[in-house]
Nucleic acid binder design. Structure first.
Length: 923
RNA sequence: GCCCAGAUGGCGGAACUGGUAGACGCGCUGGAUUCAAAAUCCAGUUCUGGCAACAGAGUGUGGGUUCGAUUCCCACUCUGGGUACCA
C-alpha cells in the first residue's frame, strides 16, 4: 500500500495530542470565532454515521477560519442526562452514571478517530455536579425573578415584593397565573409567610402548576409522547391515560414577543424562523364572555374573528374545560362523563390526527348570545383543545370548516352572515367577504368589521381585545431519576429555594422506578442519602433533558469555573456562537429554550448579548433503513409481516443488527429485552419471521443506525470526512450508502501519487510553475474559498478533485503549487495534508499555515467560448476575444458560416448578446 | 389536519443573481497493463433514431411569464421530517 493512511493518521493523532495543537486560549490579539455543534447524547449504540456529518462540516469550517487567522473556539461535550441510560438502569439495576461513563468513552474513541480539532480540555458533561450546579443556579435565578411588562424584562423578585409592600398588586403589569387575586398593600402585609410565598409563586418565572401528562397506571409511571404508540405504552403495550400533575413550569410565554422579534436579528434559515414563528403563534383577536341560561357561570371564548359573532350558533368547550360538570344537565351527565373519559385516553396528538372523525356531545345547557340574546347550545368537542386560548370557542359554522362539519354532523344551525356567498356546501374561510345579517356590522368588510366588533364588545363590557400566543409555558419537571435535581425543598407542601451555593447532588436510590404511590424515583431517597436536606422533604422531580442544553454554549467558554457559571471576561471575549450546526429536529425545542434562557440571563445582566446563535445551519438527516416487528395487541405474540393485516397489531422498531435481509434472528431478539424473552412468533410459510421495513431518519430510537468505525478502518478518517461531505448538500437529507466511498479514496491515492514516485519516495520539484499550473491552482483557490464562505461543503470536494486531475495531467509536482494546494485540502483531509506539509519541510503544523491568497492575474482569459443559441436552443460554440463590443460580437456571429444553417431565409427577428455569457438569435 | 422541506441520468449529486442541463464521483461498457487478480491508466456513457454528421425529446405533473426557465409565478401529485386541532 502506497498511501498508508493507518500509519499517517496514527502518527499525527499522537503528535497533535502531544503538541496540544487544538488547545485554545483567549488571545486578544486575534479576532475570535466560535463554532459549535449540537451536543450529542451519548447513547449505547455509539456514534452513527449521521452524527459526524455536522461535526465534520463544522470542523472543516473551524479549520478554514483558523487558517484565515481567527482564534477559533470549537469545543465538544455531552448532554449526558437522558432516558435510555435510565431505562437501562431500570432493567439491570446498574447506576446510569456507569452506563453513561461507558458510553462516553466509546463516543470519545469514535470521535478521536475522525480527526476533529476539538479542544478537549474544555469538555463538559451535563450530568456532572460541576456542571449541573450551575444549571441549578440558573433555575434559582429564574425562581427569584419575575417579568415586568413595563420595563419589558425580567427583574429580581425582591423588587416585586417591595412593590407589594408599598402598593399591593393593582399596578403590577406582569405575567402571572390566571387565578391570582387582587390585594392591597395592607392585605399583603397582613399575609403570613406561607400566604406570601404562594402569591409570589404565581409571578415567579419558575413556578408550580397543574399540567396533563401521559400516565400509564400499569407501569406506574409517566411516559414521554415518544413512548406511547396508538394509545398504548411502547413497552408492554399497556393503556395510557391523561392525568393532571403538579409540576414546575417556566414562564417562557412572558418572552413570546421578544422571541418573535429576535428572529430578525439572527442568520437562520427562513424555514426554521418560520417554524419558530408558527410555534409562538401570535394572533390578534378578542375575548368574549357568554352568559349561561339559568346558570351563574359564564364561558369566556377567544376568537380571531369577532366580526363573525352574528354567525355564532353554538359554543364548543374542550372535554377538560373546568365547567364541564357544572354545565351538564341531569339527563346528559352520563354521556358527557363517558365522552370526557374516552377523551382522556387519547393523546392530543391522536385527537389532532383524527380530523375526519368528528365527535362531540351536548351538555344540555345553553349560552346567551351577547348581542342577539338568543339561546345557543353548548357542546363538548375533542377538536377544541384545553391548552389553546380559553379552551372554549364560539362556533361559526358558516365561516370555519371544522365548525361547519360539526354543525352538519349534529344538525345544528348554520346561519349565513356573508353577502352573496353560498355556505350550503362548505364554510367560507375567505377574508374578502362583506358581512350581512349582523346588525351594526352589516355592509362592512372583514377588516373593518373586526375593529368595529371589538369596539362594541368593549363598550358593552362583554369582552376585550386580546393578543393570544399559541406558545405555552414550558413544563420543567420530569418524574425521572437521571436528571438534575431541583434546589428546592418543601415545608407544608410549599416549595422553598435552597440558599446553599452548593450543588444538590443526585441521591442514591435502591431502584430507579417510581414508588408504589406513584411518586418519582427520588422519593425513594432517605434523608441521609441527600447531600443537602431541608424542610419536610426535597423536590422529587428532576429537570428535563433540555435544561442542561439550554446554556451549555456559555459553559464551554469557562468549563472548570467553580465560582461562577462563566467568568465575565471570558463571555465578553467569546460572545455569541458565530456558527451553530445541528439537526432541524431541534427547531422548536432546544433552539427556542436556549434563546429564552439567553434573553433571561441578558435581562439579569449576566451576559451582554440576547441571542445565543448568530448563524445557524441545519444539517439534513442521514436516512437509514429500519425494520419492524408486529405485536398482536394485548399479547406478547409477534406476527410475520405478510400476515400482519389479519390481526390488530402495534408496529415496533427492531434493531437492524438482529435482522438479516429482513429475516429476524429470533434468538437474539428474545435476548434484546426481558419482556421479549417469552415472546411467541407466528412465522411465514418458509418458517421465517419477516420484518417490515421503511427508509426513515437514522436514529437510536429507530434502531437503524450504522457506525463509522468499519469505514475508518477500511479507508481512513480523511476518506470518511471527504465522503460524508461529498454525499450532497449539508442541509439536505440523504440516504446512507457507502458505495461511492472508494471514489473519494482513489482521489486521495491519486494526490499521494502526484507527490511520490513509484518507489513511494516523496518526490517534489523546486521548479517555477507554469501559467497553466498557476491557473489550475488559483481556479481552485477561488472556487473553494467562495464555496466555503457559502457553506457549500460538497462542491469543494469536486473542486479539489478537479485540481488534482489537472495537476496529474500536467504532471505537476512543483513545490509552490503543492504547498498551497495542501493547505486547501487540509480542512477536509487534515491527516494526509499534515503529512505532506511536513514532508515539504515545514516544521510547524499545517493548522498554523495561512490560507492561500487568490491572484486574479492567473485567471485572466483572452477568449470566451460563446454558446450560440437559436430561439434559446444551443447549436454551437463560437470562441471570441474577451474584449469585443456587442456590435463586434454581432458581426462575428453573423459572419460565421455555421450561423447561416440555422437562419430562415437569411433573416432573424432579434439578436440578444449577453457579454461573457451567451448569444441568442431569435428567429 | 397543520407547519417545514424536497423531487434533475442506472445511483449520489452540479448548474451561486433567469443564460451551454447533467460538473465531480459511483456504476456500467470496451480497451491497455498482468500468468491471473487487486491496483492503475485510456476511451465511451441522459434517452430515442443514426456508422456518423446530426435531429428530436428531456430537470415530479399541468399551465403561465420571458428572446431564453432546473431557477420566477399559479394549480396539482408524490416523498421525507416535525407536530401542541392556531378557533
Amino acid at each position: 500500500m502506497q498511501y498508508n493512511f493507518k500509519k499517517i493518521e496514527k502518527k499525527w493523532a499522537t503528535n497533535w495530542r502531544k503538541q496540544k495543537t487544538y488547545k485554545i486560549t483567549e488571545d486578544h490579539s486575534k479576532k475570535k470565532f466560535y463554532v459549535l455543534d449540537m451536543f450529542p447524547y451519548p447513547s449505547g449504540a455509539g456514534l452513527h454515521v449521521g452524527h459526524p456529518l455536522g461535526y465534520i462540516a463544522s470542523d472543516i469550517y473551524s479549520r478554514y477560519k483558523r487558517l484565515n487567522g481567527f482564534n477559533v473556539l470549537h469545543p465538544m461535550g455531552y448532554d449526558s442526562f437522558g432516558l435510555p441510560a435510565e431505562q437501562y438502569a431500570i432493567q439491570t439495576g446498574q447506576h446510569p452514571e456507569i452506563t453513561t461513563e461507558n458510553n462516553i468513552l466509546r463516543y470519545r474513541e469514535q470521535l478521536d478517530k475522525i480527526g476533529f480539532s476539538f479542544d478537549w480540555s474544555r469538555e463538559i458533561r451535563t450530568s456532572q455536579p460541576l456542571y449541573y450546579k450551575w444549571t441549578q443556579w440558573i433555575f434559582k435565578q429564574l425562581f427569584n425573578s419575575y417579568y415586568c411588562n413595563i420595563d419589558n424584562k425580567a427583574l429580581p423578585i425582591s423588587e416585586l415584593i417591595s412593590e407589594f409592600t408599598r402598593n399591593g398588586n393593582a399596578m403590577v403589569k406582569s405575567p402571572c397565573d390566571e387565578n391570582t387575586p387582587l390585594f392591597t398593600a395592607k392585605e399583603w402585609n397582613a399575609f403570613d409567610g406561607e400566604q406570601q410565598e404562594s402569591i409570589l409563586l404565581k409571578y415567579r418565572l419558575a413556578y408550580l402548576s397543574e399540567t396533563w401528562v401521559n400516565w400509564c397506571p400499569e407501569l406506574g409511571t409517566v411516559l414521554a409522547n415518544d413512548e406511547v404508540k396508538d394509545g398504548l405504552s411502547e413497552r408492554g403495550g399497556f393503556p395510557v391515560e391523561q392525568k393532571k400533575m403538579k409540576q414546575w413550569s417556566l414562564r417562557i410565554t412572558a418572552y413570546a414577543e421578544r422571541l418573535l422579534k429576535g428572529l430578525n436579528d439572527i442568520e437562520w434559515s427562513d424555514s426554521i424562523k418560520e417554524i419558530q414563528k408558527n410555534w409562538i403563534g401570535k394572533s390578534k383577536g378578542a375575548l368574549i364572555r357568554f352568559n349561561i341560561h339559568n346558570n351563574s357561570n359564564y364561558i369566556e371564548i377567544f376568537t380571531t374573528r369577532p366580526d363573525t359573532i352574528y354567525g355564532a350558533s353554538f359554543i364548543v368547550i374542550s372535554p377538560e374545560h373546568p365547567l364541564v360538570s357544572a354545565l351538564s344537565t341531569k339527563n346528559q351527565q352520563k354521556i358527557v362523563s363517558e365522552y370526557c373519559k374516552r377523551s382522556t385516553l387519547k393523546s392530543e396528538r391522536e385527537r389532532q390526527a383524527n380530523v375526519k372523525d368528528i365527535s362531540g356531545v351536548f351538555t344540555g345547557s345553553y349560552a346567551i348570545h351577547p348581542f342577539t340574546k338568543e339561546k345557543i347550545p353548548i357542546w363538548i368537542g375533542e377538536y377544541v383543545l384545553a391548552s389553546y386560548g380559553t379552551g372554549a370557542i364560539m362556533a361559526v359554522p358558516c365561516g370555519d370548516q371544522r365548525d361547519w362539519e360539526f354543525a352538519q354532523k349534529f344538525n345544528l344551525d348554520i346561519p349565513n352572515i356573508f353577502k352573496n356567498i353560498d355556505v350550503n356546501e362548505k364554510a367560507n374561510e375567505n377574508k374578502d367577504a362583506i358581512i350581512e345579517n349582523s346588525d351594526f356590522l352589516n355592509g362592512l368588510n372583514v377588516h373593518d368589521a373586526i375593529l368595529r366588533s371589538i369596539l362594541e364588545i368593549q363598550k358593552q363590557g362583554i369582552g376585550q381585545e386580546k393578543i393570544n400566543y399559541k406558545l405555552r409555558n414550558a413544563i420543567f419537571s420530569r418524574q425521572r431519576y437521571w436528571g438534575e435535581p431541583f434546589p428546592i425543598f418543601y415545608k407544608n407542601e410549599i416549595p422553598y429555594l435552597l440558599e446553599e451555593v452548593d450543588c444538590v447532588e443526585l441521591p442514591l436510590v435502591n431502584k430507579y422506578l417510581p414508588t408504589k404511590t406513584g411518586d418519582p424515583p427520588l422519593a425513594r431517597a432517605k434523608k441521609k442519602d441527600w447531600n443537602i436536606f431541608k424542610g419536610d422533604r426535597m423536590e422529587y422531580n428532576t429537570m428535563p433533558g433540555w435544561a442542561g442544553s439550554s446554556w451549555y454554549f456559555l459553559r464551554f467558554m469557562d468549563p472548570k469555573n467553580n465560582k461562577e457559571f462563566v467568568a465575565k471576561e471570558k463571555v465578553t471575549y467569546w460572545g455569541q456562537v458565530d456558527l451553530y450546526i445541528g439537526g432541524a429536529e431541534h427547531a422548536v425545542g432546544h433552539l427556542l429554550y436556549s434563546r429564552f434562557w439567553t434573553k433571561f440571563l441578558f435581562d439579569r445582566g449576566f451576559i451582554h448579548f440576547e441571542e445565543p446563535f448568530k448563524k445557524l445551519i441545519n444539517q439534513g438527516m442521514i436516512l437509514g433503513r429500519s425494520n419492524f416487528v408486529y405485536r398482536i395487541n394485548g399479547t406478547n405474540t409477534f406476527v410475520s409481516a405478510e400476515q400482519k393485516d389479519n390481526y390488530e397489531v402495534t408496529r415496533l422498531h427492531v434493531d437492524i443488527n438482529y435482522v438479516d435481509k429482513d429475516v429476524l434472528n429470533i434468538e437474539r431478539f428474545k435476548k434484546w429485552r426481558p419482556e421479549f424473552e417469552n415472546a411467541k412468533f407466528i412465522l411465514n410459510k418458509t418458517g421465517n419471521y419477516i420484518c417490515g421495513f421503511e427508509v426513515e431518519k437514522m436514529s437510536k430510537s429507530k434502531y437503524n443506525t450504522q457506525t463509522p468505525d468499519e469505514l475508518i478502518n477500511q479507508f481512513g478518517a480523511d476518506t470518511l470526512r471527504m465522503y460524508e461531505m461529498f454525499l450532497g448538500p449539508l442541509e439536505q437529507s440523504k440516504p446512507w450508502d457507502t458505495k461511492g466511498i472508494n471514489g473519494v479514496h482513489s482521489f486521495l491515492k491519486k494526490f499521494w501519487r502526484l507527490t511520490h514516485d513509484n518507489e513511494n519516495n516523496f518526490n517534489i520539484s523546486q521548479e517555477k510553475p507554469s501559467d497553466t499550473e498557476y491557473k489550475s491552482l488559483h481556479k481552485c483557490i477561488k472556487k473553494i474559498t467562495e464555496d466555503l464562505e457559502r457553506f457549500s461543503f460538497n462542491t469543494v470536494v469536486s473542486a479539489l478533485m478537479i485540481c488534482v486531475n489537472e495537476l496529474t495531467d500536467l504532471k505537476c509536482n512543483k513545490k509552490e503549487i503543492i504547498e498551497a494546494y495542501v493547505i486547501l485540502l487540509s480542512p477536509y483531509a487534515p491527516y494526509i495534508s499534515e503529512e505532506i506539509w511536513s514532508a515539504l519541510g515545514n516544521s510547524n503544523s499545517i493548522n498554523d499555515a495561512t490560507w492561500p491568497q487568490l491572484e486574479e492575474k492567473y485567471l485572466k482569459q483572452e477568449n470566451i467560448k460563446y454558446p450560440v443559441a437559436f430561439n434559446g436552443k444551443m447549436r454551437f460554440i463560437l470562441e471570441l476575444p474577451v474584449d469585443l463590443s456587442k456590435e463586434e460580437i454581432k458581426q462575428h456571429v453573423l459572419e460565421y458560416p455555421k450561423t447561416n444553417n440555422y437562419l430562415i431565409e437569411n433573416s432573424f427577428k432579434k439578436i440578444i448578446i449577453v457579454p461573457n455569457k451567451i448569444i441568442n438569435i431569435v428567429l
